[in-house]
Design a protein around this nucleic acid. Structure first.
Lengths: 182, 182
DNA sequence: GGACTCATGTAAGCTGTTACATGATTTC
DNA sequence: GAAATCATGTAACAGCTTACATGAGTCC
């Protein structure tokens, strides 16, 4: 599923401008997806060209004009079809895990700083998700999504806290042979 | 951190061919990174050109020849520097979460199938990680990485199992208003 | 006989990011 | 007066995947 599909999905919820959609990404999708203006605006233009959304320009009083997008029937049908075809994949790209994997090549101070940073990062994410999960507007599916995010992040935080001292104590012991080959 | 850095990291562990590195990715990095031959081979050539690795060709008896790469001192230094600069980021791209978010636009059968698929997918991942965590070769950092993977996956699986019936029962209730905007 | 493993590579293309360009208005 | 918010867009580039090309050996 590409970004234009997610934009289309956003427009199933309500009419919005590119700017609004960016906000929605940050507010509602941030724990499983991200997007920049540089891909949102071209995606919207492309959707309009394909007739999946309509545009009308709202003159901004004082502010810049807004181009507000509304999904068409064809657009809704296309999105439902996309949902029907997509298969539920998850891919993580974790620089943190890379650093852990090669931790024996790091200084103790650096490792300690990394662990600190991740702990506070997880805590922040957790705080955010715990705030939004009480939003009465969420559908059951959305709520489950956030719940999964909370459970997963909270579990990681626990492991980090539990093993932090131990890791720093035994630090600098390199792997004994070739790991990860069962 | 890009793929060539991870290749360099792999070669810190031992000499290897592109093919070997792909195997290592699948065996040891699979829970936090992925890579295809189409990026590994060019990365290795590029590292060789930069003098960060050396190559020698082992004639394969019967099999194709192997180009075995060994990291140089410059390569090791470069990798340590990369580790020093990288900041511990994590980004998830979850199609599953997208499907959950728009679950109210899915048929009940489809939703049920998706949940099944994810449950068995998580179970499989979990099984794999539980097998490799007992490998005595793992360094403390590597082990912590796998432990985080296990805790996180196991937490997600629990939430899925706990809320499956409930979600299917209340299915098709759309969000009441605009979600995710605190 | 078919499928899988071993083994390397290229070229085209997809998808996205970063940085730039612009500029008024509101908040501190 | 500085910084943030509102608002849209483009162009260059980065980074990776997919599909193709090749071919012998081994396992069932």
């Amino acid at each position: 599923m590409k970004l234009s599909d997610l934009c289309l999905g956003s427009l199933c919820l309500r009419d919005a401008s590119g700017y609004d959609i960016k906000k929605l990404f940050e507010a509602a999708f941030s724990h499983f997806h991200s997007a920049s203006y540089g891909s949102i605006y071209p995606a919207l233009n492309q959707l309009a060209k394909a007739g999946l959304v309509e545009v009308h320009t709202e003159p901004g009083q004082g502010r810049p004009d807004r181009k507000v997008y509304r999904i068409t029937e064809a657009g809704e049908a296309a999105f439902v079809e996309t949902l029907g075809r997509a298969d539920p994949t998850e891919q993580l790209k974790s620089e943190f895990q890379v650093l852990l994997f090669f931790a024996h090549q790091l200084s103790t101070e650096r490792l300690s700083a990394i662990l600190d940073q991740m702990e506070s990062h997880y805590r922040e994410k957790l705080g955010y998700m715990e705030r939004i999960i009480n939003d009465p507007c969420l559908s059951a599916g959305m709520r489950l999504g956030v719940e999964i995010g909370i459970a997963s992040t909270s579990a990681r935080l626990d492991v980090l806290r539990k093993h932090r001292q131990e890791l720093l104590a035994t630090h600098k012991e390199p792997p004994r042979c070739e790991p990860g080959l069962p």
